[in-house]
């Protein structure tokens, strides 16, 4: 009876030790679907709206120059003998149009890059904060390129992380 008690006590202690080891050593992991988190990030949505407004405003200026250019082309086409002055005006307008179009495209690309950098900087920081606050060892990013081939659905943190990053972004 005494031996039995010792054996049973040993089993319980071993189980307890295993449980503690299991809790301490097992890294906590999860994954997020990057595209989903990015698409639903409020900061991204706000900057997207801002970018569209700026881009449209720039485009309006280009469109009105294009219209003027079309008018000058029509005017020149209707002339049997081309007026030298009109040709000069057309050439100047065309140069202005091409120059402004190029600048507008460059500015749009630069703004888009700047916004992308800002979005990714904040997104990365907030995911890092989520991991730290919730004791994750790894949070993997599933971007659909095969880097994460399979994971249990229970490890999917996309919804929780999206909620968290939006809350963080709003300074709550």
């Amino acid at each position: 009876m005494k031996n039995q008690t010792i054996i049973n006590g040993g089993i319980v202690t071993a189980l307890l030790a295993f449980a503690i080891y299991y809790m301490v050593s097992k890294p906590k992991t999860g994954y997020v679907v990057i595209q989903e988190v990015y698409t639903n990030f409020e900061f991204k949505k706000e900057l997207e709206r801002k970018f569209t407004i700026t881009k449209n405003a720039r485009q309006k200026g280009i469109d009105s120059l294009e219209l003027e250019l079309k008018y000058l082309v029509n005017k020149l086409e209707q002339q049997k003998t081309k007026d030298k002055n009109d040709i000069l005006i057309f050439n100047n307008k065309r140069d202005e149009y091409l120059h402004k179009k190029k600048i507008s495209e460059e500015d749009n690309a630069a703004l888009s890059n700047q916004y992308d950098t800002e979005i990714l900087t904040q997104l990365n920081q907030y995911v890092k904060d989520y991991g730290t606050e919730n004791n994750y060892t790894y949070i993997y990013g599933n971007d659909g390129n095969g880097s994460l081939m399979y994971s249990k659905e229970s490890e999917n943190l996309t919804k929780k992380v999206t909620e968290y990053i939006n809350k963080k972004y709003n300074g709550k």
Binding site: F43, L47, E118, T121, Q122, Y169, N170, G171
Partner: peptide, 9 residues
Amino acid sequence: FKKGIIKFT
């Protein structure tokens, strides 16, 4: 510093 929009609620 190009950190984007900073909000505090």
